[in-house]
Design a protein around this nucleic acid. Sequence first.
RNA 1: GGGCCAUUAGCUCAGCUGGCAGAGCACCUGACUUUUAAUCAGGGUGUCCCAGGUUCGAAUCCUGGAUGGCUCACCA
Length: 501
Amino acid sequence: MEQEHLGEQLLLRRQKLKELRAQGVEPYGLKYPVSHSAREVKEGFAILEGKTVRLAGRMLTRRGHGKACFANIQDGSGQVQIYIRLDNVGDEQYALFQNLDIGDIIGCGGAVFKTRTGEITVNVETFTLLSKALRPLPEKWHGLKDVETRYRRRYADLLANPEVRRVFILRSKIIQAMREFLTGKDFLEVETPVMHTVTGGATARPFVTYHNALDLDLYLRIATELHLKRLVVGGLERVFELGRIFRNEGISTSHNPEFTSVEIYQANADYEDMMELMEKMVLAIAQQVLGSNQVIYQERELDFSLPWPRKKLIDLVNEITGIDFREISGDVEARKIATSRGLEPGKGSTWGEILFRFFEEYCEDKLWGPVFVQDYPVDVSPLARRCDEDAAFTYRFECFMAGKEIANAFTELTDPLDQRERFQQQVQKRAGGDEEAHMMDEDFLNALEYGMPPTGGLGIGIDRLVMILTGSTSIRDVILFPTMRPKELDQELNLSKDDIK
RNA sequence: GGGCCAUUAGCUCAGCUGGCAGAGCACCUGACUUUUAAUCAGGGUGUCCCAGGUUCGAAUCCUGGAUGGCUCACCA
């Protein structure tokens, strides 16, 4: 019997629902003519005292006293107490109220007053059931703790845990502040395709999908870079795109298969301009959203005050590992050094790749930041312009906070011939089995051949930035519905017709 | 993918060396007209994640599996 899967409480609530309908009470009403939010009632008490207000929300607690009853109602703005008494509403309504369950959504109206313990309260004269809750709410004191349930049923998480709500409100404000900052500097927000015929702009494995009418494999984008640069070629000199990126890779506390990035391109700029843009933007966001230049992350302070330190990658590796790559010449010697440090370099590993590897292995997690690490080897930067002073390096930087890479940026490579060569190297790697290497993008090269102005580009991982600014240690805590393996439990939530009867 | 850990009532959690499945909140019955984690009296509502095995007897021990968390690998 399907009904056996429902606990006693779930059955009882279904029973109550049936009884309400039998009494002519509709348990799923239409909108209630709300006059004030819970917060407005509390903040406006001086003016509202004695006046009638109407509010709607979910009943979270109830304290019955026989012929009178207190309850707390929560709406989007917060909670407020209501008070209902038999001699105000009559037998029938009072019985109806007592039959409500915690979790039910009601609308109610009455005069605002203060109880003798000083709590601002609405003295209910009328109320309506707006939505009957068939499931009990998570526990009022401890909230919903089970991490798996929190991610799978974010609605219950949001209902029960105010701090979760706070994080997602902050996330929205951070993105809004970023958008305002950029549009305020004449950047144009654009939308480029999510489905690509050729992937590029990052080293990552893509998701593949299929279009029936075109009989075509399509890739979900792994970056927005190559399309945005096409737009710069087209004369849109300042563009940005905030949007979802998909990478078919592992899941961890800092990786979700779909995540949000912002990429920003500015003609007639270089990577130093991008550093300035980044530090100013993040500082502005912190000030606007947190009201502070600092944030405490993992019990340690991160200070966004300007300017942020800048370090050359090669110097950083020297500082931390004691190995000066300037004194290592050639791939063979580099591989020897790597082997001696237990890094097991691949057969064809180059000097630049190994330098980068040393950085990743020994330096990244020590960068508390915020800090800009600049001038990456050309071998690992196929879309960045070479440095004039040394063609083995590029004008590229990454920004680190709390040991995590938050942003990646460069003076863009605008030379179509150099770009073609770099693609060709990537294609070779791909042929050698590297599924993350770039594909040849002829149309992008075609665009570059029309001539692209000197351009600075910057990409920021929004989720990670939000983690830092909200003090979250897992990316799942800043993504409303993180990717989860489906569970048969989902079927448990699908009630058969038998249950509803 | 590897390692470690977790999974018991709607929720938060106990449950020892194997011996009748427990508490708080929620829920049900009753009392109570200014309480606020309301209070008081009574009631346990369960596929102990799943499947095997050991045993007279398994929530507990063993094997396999599922899901999740952390971590390593990979990445951003």
